[in-house]
Design a protein around this nucleic acid. Structure first.
Length: 341
DNA sequence: GGCATAGTCTCCTA
DNA sequence: GAGACTATGCC
């Protein structure tokens, strides 16, 4: 998933408070995948309702989104539409990798190796259409805009950020920088502490911001060269990239051959799709201007219905979370400045 | 005691 | 992943 350019950028640490009042576009597929793979029990099994339906993603989505709202952040969620046909190979590979992980998960469970079981279960995570639908519904009940992208969600979010309709794109992947998003925010979590697997070490994960133009200036690159680098190291459309080329070699190559044709005449291209086709997709992906960024008050009745009645969430906990937000908004309303809406 | 912070447990089922 | 909860340390 995504583009292996992690070492290339110099992220700037930020805190949630600095995002207060800002509109941000969250990569919905990325967020749901994170929640569904992370929120598990000790042996790797999901949280589930009385009918055995997965609820992990709803828990993560509800509590994090509510927390963002409490911090005055205005999130919208962008979901993937129909992937381009040339992504099929990648999608097929992912299906296979998940299947393999699922078999290894079962085996680890039989051997009662719960640590391994959990890790394999997380690798086998799949988001079903029902999980997507319920997530969209929950967001709608929370008064948060949902945007369904015509194609790649990151392309749509980047388009919205480029237009200035949102302050930043939020994702763990770097794709939006190739789609020309001016700002990418990673690690947008609320609680910082994270336990490293297998070890008794806690690390502090803080949100970070990558400003595209600052990075291009620092690296002395044009945006086209960044896309070329991405294609060299591998994108969702040519997974794993060219053998033997990582970020370092890719950087040297685009510096040596800033011209697209010259560059790709000098590397060993083994994919069915041409590099130009990938390049053109990042430059000009299908996006839409048909979206509404309008935030509403949460609808507690619908939220209780979905989370508590339908999926057995604790009513006390959900009520408490909703109550804290409405108290906060009441207080802000009393100051005479209702800046949220 | 009160308060803050660090680390642990639970969330989700009949 | 997030919030509730418990343990610990400091005044």
């Amino acid at each position: 998933m995504g583009i292996a350019l992690s070492g290339l950028f110099n992220p700037v640490e930020i805190n949630i408070e600095s995002l207060s009042g800002r509109k941000i576009a969250i990569d919905g597929n990325n967020a749901l995948y994170q929640f569904a793979s992370t929120i598990r029990q000790y042996d790797g099994s999901f949280l589930m309702d009385s009918k055995g339906r997965v609820t992990s993603h709803l828990s993560g989505l509800f509590y994090r989104t509510m927390s963002l709202l409490k911090h005055g952040v205005k999130p919208c969620f962008v979901f993937d539409g129909k992937p381009p046909s040339f992504k099929n190979a990648t999608i097929g590979e992912r299906v296979n990798a998940r299947e393999k992980a699922r078999e290894e998960y079962k085996l680890a469970l039989e051997e009662e190796d719960f640590e391994r079981a959990k890790s394999k279960a997380q690798q086998s995570t799949r988001i079903t259409p029902e999980m997507f639908d319920e997530s969209r519904a929950l967001l709608d009940y929370m008064g948060v805009p949902v945007i369904n992208a015509p194609s790649e969600g990151e392309a749509q979010a980047s388009h919205m950020c480029f237009k200035g309709d949102v302050f930043a794109c939020v994702s763990q992947d770097y794709d939006s920088l190739l789609f020309n998003s001016p700002i990418l925010i990673r690690n947008l979590n609320i609680t910082g502490k994270r336990k490293l697997p297998q070890k008794n070490i806690y690390v502090n994960i803080t949100p970070e911001k990558i400003v595209l133009q600052d990075e291009l200036n620092r690296l002395g690159l044009f945006h086209d060269q960044l896309i070329m680098m991405g294609i060299l190291v591998g994108t969702d459309f040519n997974p794993k990239g060219i053998f033997g080329i990582g970020p370092k070699k890719a950087y040297d190559l685009v510096k040596q051959y800033p011209n697209f044709d010259t560059l790709f005449n000098n590397v060993k291209w083994t994919f069915d799709i041409s590099p130009k086709e990938i390049f053109d997709f990042f430059k000009n992906p299908p996006v839409t201007n048909d979206y509404n960024l309008h935030w509403k008050q949460p609808n507690p009745d619908k939220i209780f219905e979905l989370l508590c009645d339908e999926h057995n969430f604790s009513k006390d906990r959900v009520e408490n979370t909703l109550g804290k937000l409405s108290q906060l908004r009441k207080k802000e309303g009393q100051t005479g400045l209702d800046k949220f809406f």
